[in-house]
Amino acid sequence: MIALAQQTEDYVSPGLQRFCIRFTTLASTNVDDAKFIDIFHAWIQRQALPGILIDVADYRHVPDGLGVMLVSHDANLYVAPDGNRYSLTYQRKTAQPGTLPQRISAAAAVALTACQLLEREQLLHGALKFDPQQWAFVANDRLLAPNDEATFHELRDDLALAAAGVYGSDNFHTEYVHQDPRERLTVNVRAAKPVDVRMLLENIRKQQHG
């Protein structure tokens, strides 16, 4: 049995630590991708996100790639074109404290904070609007969480607990994404009703403090 989620609150909890949270925008045009470089450098200057922010990597030259990446000690965060939308991926790298649902919800909070900063970013003139009604959870650890239904079943309760905290209700569903088994295990989480970034951040804050 894989220790995907250890129900302890040790500072460094074992179990699945490498995972990604991905949010996508509504259809968006007129975004100059180069602006993300300026924006991320400014975030480093003012330490705008939690974590130890280090550098910006420009991967715009890679077709179908990762766009512009903000590298931190704890996580990578990248924004890339995704058809006529943009996706923001927050990839956790280091161990976080807490249970797996707590770790997922903490990661979602950072990702949503980044979404909110981008929505409000003057350089983008309000061109990006995220659609957090749906987000993806990607387990980035094939040894611990291979991409199969069994792992999904093992993860589902923890993911549901985390999603309930994010949405502030149980009115959502999780769906295992059937794809090339060599890819990473991916689960889509979708709320029944439209929501916005601010609302979700508020939910997580309440949950964390209450």
Binding site: R18, A57, Y59, V62, G65, L66, M69, V71, N76, Q91, N140, D141, R142, R182, R184
Partner: peptide, 11 residues
């Protein structure tokens, strides 16, 4: 490809 994704920045 796997190790780049899991331990690096997927590049």
């Amino acid at each position: 490809a796997d190790i780049a994704e899991e331990y690096s920045d997927a590049i």
